[in-house]
Amino acid sequence: MLLIMFYIAAIIAVVSTGAVIFSRNPVYSVIYLIISLFAVAMVFYTLGAPFLAMAEIIIYAGAIMVLFLFVVMMLNLGQNRKDEDLQAASAKALVLPLTFTTILAMLTVLALAGAIPAPHAVGTSSAALGKALFDKHFLGVKLAAFILLVGSIGGMHLGRASSTPDTKETRI
């Protein structure tokens, strides 16, 4: 059962990653990437890492990809926007993502209902992960905090109104 789940998730991950590369509309690419990350989270579940599966869905698919989607929609990319807006409503474009998300949702429900139990692992359980993270690798946790601090400061600096090129040119 676990192997079947792994293969379904792996096939969905590979196909939707391919669709990321070859779809014309950036919005579709971001949505396919979200599906791919969801499938990789399923693979994490079959590898005995349920905590990382949740972290993948919440942080990667939930936070990072929504930021991507936000920027893509803000930039309004694409040659002819009118056609793309019409395409977005067409049923043909929705078939593949809807199929993938339905299969993944069914797998999630099966896993939550206990039909696909998470593999029993002693060394790699969530408790072992927490112990290793905050005991052996605590310096790494601090470094991760610094990375996030630097990232937020950098994003704030780049997003300041005075660092936009227009105002700088007028000042010079």
Binding site: A49, L52, I64, L129, A132, L133, A144
Partner: peptide
């Protein structure tokens, strides 16, 4: 669990 710990470090780097 060390590999999983490193995935936890990849997450903030990616963010």
């Amino acid at each position: 669990p060390d590999g999983q710990v490193f995935f936890m470090f990849i997450l903030p780097v990616a963010a």
